[in-house]
Design a protein around this nucleic acid. Sequence first.
DNA 1: GTCTATAAATAGATAGAC
DNA 2: GTCTATCTATTTATAGAC
Lengths: 212, 212
Amino acid sequence: MATAARARHAAPDTRTAVFEAAARAFSARGFDGALVDDIAADAGVNKAMIYYHFKSKLALYRAIVRDMLHGCGDVVGEVATRPEPAAARMRAFIAAFVTLADARPWFPPLMMRELSEGAPRLDAATLALMRVVFGSFHRILADGQASGEFRPVNPVLAYLSVLGPLRMNAARERAASRPGRNRLPMFAMVSHADLTDHLQESALRMLKASRL
Amino acid sequence: MATAARARHAAPDTRTAVFEAAARAFSARGFDGALVDDIAADAGVNKAMIYYHFKSKLALYRAIVRDMLHGCGDVVGEVATRPEPAAARMRAFIAAFVTLADARPWFPPLMMRELSEGAPRLDAATLALMRVVFGSFHRILADGQASGEFRPVNPVLAYLSVLGPLRMNAARERAASRPGRNRLPMFAMVSHADLTDHLQESALRMLKASRL
DNA sequence: GTCTATAAATAGATAGAC
DNA sequence: GTCTATCTATTTATAGAC
């Protein structure tokens, strides 16, 4: 988000307000569903300011996606290179993803949507950031397989098994948060501590070299 | 889709063409992103026909979601009540979901999107259908836990672990299908046979009562 | 940096002829 | 059942004053 470069300006951070309102809107309603007027209103800012600070609706959207993936890449890159056994790093990777999703709750739905549409709005630089995140996961997996901790599995399928439930839970939480939905069993509240535990346990059971 | 009631009409099935084009469009671009003009063009039909056969864009969308969930509920309901051990039914449940996703490839992305937006377009009847699907899953899980085949797990989390990877794979396939994406490791081709095997193995490892 | 007013394009929907 | 033409509302974006 590069706030440092703007710190000297006197203005209350309009740009940040726009960024955050837009992140919420794009996540909740998609690129086409999110309206620039609504983003401006939610940010408490005049619509023209959005075009002043960002070039266009698309440029604003891209800035948000890049910010997400940058933060993500830094964190999981650090986790993947720790001098620890692969199983411990896998647990840390999952915990980091849950934490990241808590810090940027708009991330998982927005990314799922973008992928579902064929990721038409992602440029090469952004795809490279996605590759970094997958690369960190793959490193942990490959290390665990080399050391005999993990069994052989397709890295792409293993990645889906770890991230898929997390992203589906984010979608589920959105639907559950609407009034009148609490009664449905599949929309029951689940704490993120329980979510983390379950994902870690499931991932290690999926990967552990031991027989069942 | 209730094709029987229209079989006596002479016309080539315009309604079906609209339905299928709309399913593709809503899945690929979302409710707001899909344009009625594009749907008409893709179906090879005049735009006014869409409003003749369906009341509105929203009514068309809802018809598609209901169709999906109906087909799904019927299949998994049958699987859940088979006189087989829970583990076998869990395998069948997963295989059925992969098959359903192959028959209606627009289903997983569309549903993920709808949930991510808080499912604002789903009425009570449609939510009830979702409940039926989850109920079938829950029945298999509870039977397995009662018989000692499965360990205790939160049913919602278990459901996410089974369906999340499937839905994320659908999103991944969309993004992978665009030109120039083949090089990225996370967009590598994965057969649905391998996908099914992996999901079944992962689910049973997640659920099996045995120690690791 | 901020606001008002408005341009320019587009989308969902319908009237009415055939 | 099908098509043409069009209405109405909305939406992205900008020009220009302050």
